[in-house]
């Protein structure tokens, strides 16, 4: 778990794991209820016939973003302590493309493949096995990849830094974009149906 709660409330390692299990189960349950354990539904995103993935992911981003902003603004969360993954431009572009190919081939992403496997879907279980085989293969073949892996490093970048805009303005803009996109895709879906 990332910095703030652990540092401030000082959970023990065991209770951190217990909380992680609880959050993981809740996340899996939410994904299943959103219908994201179904490969057809996920593949529908790539064929622009079903926008469930976009809507679920974008609403999650907006919810988390508003929560993080307001909790930090009200002094509950110390945003400076929240881990921001580092940006590596080329490796992440290449990894994203590879991820997308795997996503559309399997119809599942890492989290949803676990959900699909847990609901007894064979394709989900095989995707989980394939994913771990891929992780292992990448780890074993890491030496020649190391230079590329560390190239074009940009450090921990956030949108407000990148755009040189106040944090709250970026939050507001992303909410507006999300709502506009939801409106457009729902109109699109209705027309397609």
């Amino acid at each position: 778990m990332t910095a703030p709660l652990v540092d401030f409330a000082a959970f023990s390692a065991a209770s951190q794991l217990a909380i992680a299990v609880f959050i993981g189960l809740a996340f899996g349950f939410a994904l299943e209820r959103a219908g994201l354990g179904d490969a057809r539904k996920l593949a529908g995103q790539f064929y622009v016939t079903d926008f469930t993935v976009l809507k679920v992911m974008f609403s999650a981003i907006v919810t988390a973003m508003l929560g993080a902003y307001w909790l930090a603004r009200l002094g509950v969360l110390d945003l400076a302590r929240v881990f921001v993954p580092e940006t590596y431009v080329l490796p992440q572009l290449a990894g994203g493309a590879l991820f997308g190919i795997g996503f559309v081939l399997a119809g599942l992403c890492p989290g949803t493949s676990c959900v699909a496997a847990a609901t007894g879907r064979g394709d989900g279980a095989l995707t989980v096995v394939g994913m771990f085989a891929g992780v292992l293969a990448t780890g074993l073949a890491f030496a020649p990849l190391r230079a590329f892996y560390a190239s074009t490093a940009r450090g921990s970048l956030t949108l407000p830094q990148l755009l040189d805009l106040p944090y709250g303005v970026v939050v507001c803009a992303i909410v507006a974009i999300a709502l506009a996109v939801f409106r457009i895709v729902e109109r699109w879906e209705r027309r397609a149906a």
Binding site: V169, C172, A178
Partner: peptide, 26 residues
């Protein structure tokens, strides 16, 4: 799209634009 949630997000987002920086150090 759930209208109530959409309005809540819009209000919180609009307030954020004038809400100032969330970082403590600043």
């Amino acid at each position: 799209m759930n209208r109530t949630l959409a309005i809540a997000a819009l209000v919180l987002g609009a307030l954020a634009a004038i809400g100032g920086s969330p970082y403590r150090a600043q």
